[in-house]
């Protein structure tokens, strides 16, 4: 390693260290009390419903997506992801208060939507590579994680699969190439 690349690497380490302090690491690795998540059930249900709303087909709330999200976060993700997720929900609350001076659940539908929209807009970097780096060092963005779990929970739910999508329990045949129908929905499973 020559002097120039040595200095460069020091600079990079400095940048990483400053953006990712020891305290933050410590916070992320503290174990989580499931209660902290269960307390936020209504908030989770509201956000999920704004992501996948009721239209002519059921939305996330009636599909019980919030239960799925909590079950998966508590049982299937590591402590780091759990902390990240709870912190993300807190950020949501904070943003509601700083923008509208009231808790998220007290906001109007329009206000709620604009809060969720704000987080959706900031969920991803424009460049895929930055998302990759971010996911690697800090974990998946809170909102992306939330949205992906909402998708999973909805599309695997009974109402999501059978009404929001097209569920074919026992197809029998395989029709390899058929004309698509008007308003064709995706298959729920593959």
């Amino acid at each position: 390693m020559n002097r120039r690349s040595y200095l460069k690497s020091l600079a990079i380490i400095g940048v990483i260290a400053s953006s990712f302090s020891g305290y933050k690491w410590y916070q992320l690795h503290q174990s989580v009390n499931p209660r902290d998540l269960l307390d936020k059930e209504l908030l989770i249900a509201e956000i999920a419903e704004i992501i996948i709303p009721q239209t002519d087909t059921p939305g996330a709330k009636s599909a019980n997506v919030h239960k799925y999200i909590m079950d998966v976060i508590i049982n299937c993700t590591d402590v780091k992801v759990q902390n990240h997720f709870i912190r993300g929900l807190n950020d949501f609350e904070d943003y509601a208060i700083s923008s509208y001076e009231k808790p998220f659940l007290k906001c109007s539908t329009k206000e709620k939507t604009s809060i969720v929209q704000h987080f959706a807009d900031n969920a991803n970097y424009k460049y895929a590579i930055l998302n990759k780096i971010n996911n690697k060092f800090l974990g998946e963005n809170f909102f992306s994680k939330f949205r992906n779990l909402t998708i999973e929970g909805y599309c695997r739910s009974k109402s999501g699969a059978t009404e929001g999508l097209c569920y074919d329990y026992i197809p029998g045949n395989y029709d390899a190439c058929i004309p698509i129908k008007i308003n064709q929905k995706s298959w729920a499973t593959k």
Partner: peptide, 18 residues
Amino acid sequence: SGHLTGIGKDFKAQLTTP
């Protein structure tokens, strides 16, 4: 789910069509 962005009605429509 990996790359679809947005929220709401339009998002749902995109999500649930081939």
